[in-house]
């Protein structure tokens, strides 16, 4: 199963990179969202999948799945939400001020 997840991660990453390289700011933001999905899956797969029960000691099982990647991902999910929200608003404000979401047109703007 890990191999399939890893290939899925590869596909998601490729899609994310392609979106990030595009000119439209909206696509770039979508790209970051997809990239973070890919990374979360990647971290989880690296810890090994389903080698035990849920990491709750109340379950009193023989073995538990690796809890560390889960903790890392939990942090990552919340952070990526914050970042996505921030750049979404950045894009929205940029559009309000400049009237475009085309990055190529934005670069000519000298705001100083």
């Amino acid at each position: 199963m890990e191999t399939i997840i890893i290939f899925l991660v590869g596909i998601l990453t490729a899609v994310a990179i392609y979106l990030l390289l595009s000119k439209s700011l909206i696509r770039v933001i979508l790209g970051t969202a997809i990239l973070s999905h890919a990374v979360h899956l990647l971290i989880l797969a690296m810890g090994g999948l389903k080698e035990g029960t849920v990491p709750l000691l109340g379950e009193e099982a023989e073995s538990y799945v690796d809890a560390l990647p889960q903790a890392l991902i939990l942090t990552a999910i919340v952070i990526s939400f914050a970042v996505t929200a921030f750049i979404l608003v950045l894009a929205y404000r940029a559009y309000q001020e400049l009237g475009t979401d085309d990055l190529d047109e934005m670069r000519g703007v000298n705001d100083e």
Partner: peptide
């Protein structure tokens, strides 16, 4: 670039496994 990037991530992940 996108495909190469995806491929790199895949290969690294597979090697780590």
């Amino acid at each position: 670039i996108a495909v190469a990037g995806g491929l790199t991530v895949t290969l690294i992940a597979l090697s780590v496994r």
